[in-house]
Amino acid sequence: MPNNKKMYDKGKVVAGLIIFGVLITFPLWYNHLKVAPAPEPKLVGKAAKAGQECIEPKSFMKAEHMLVLDIWRDTVVRSAKRVYVNESGKEFEMSLTNTCLDCHTEKAEFCDKCHNYALVLPYCWDCHIDPKEKM
């Protein structure tokens, strides 16, 4: 650093640095120094309450559910195959409505919880609406 302590254009430089500081610490004050609680998706369907198990373990579903749905759709629509066999040999009908929605009845209580939190908003819902949702 030069030994003279004078800052040239001090007003402008300080203003710029304040803008820098505000932008860089934006998440800090936007969240009011608090961590919003992580979402807890709820299973409210009857089948879930009756102890129905998911088609695959939770950790797998968490990471791959979108691929499962995508593959199911293609298999049903293109190959007319409707039976899914999981790791342990159990069979399920490849159907969102008849299989998944038995447990995951409420989109708002289950899917949206994490999807809104992580801002993952698939375009499926641009056309396929959840009838319970008000437009």
Partner: peptide, 9 residues
Amino acid sequence: VVDWARSPV
């Protein structure tokens, strides 16, 4: 940045 601001032009 302050270092630069202290350098005369």
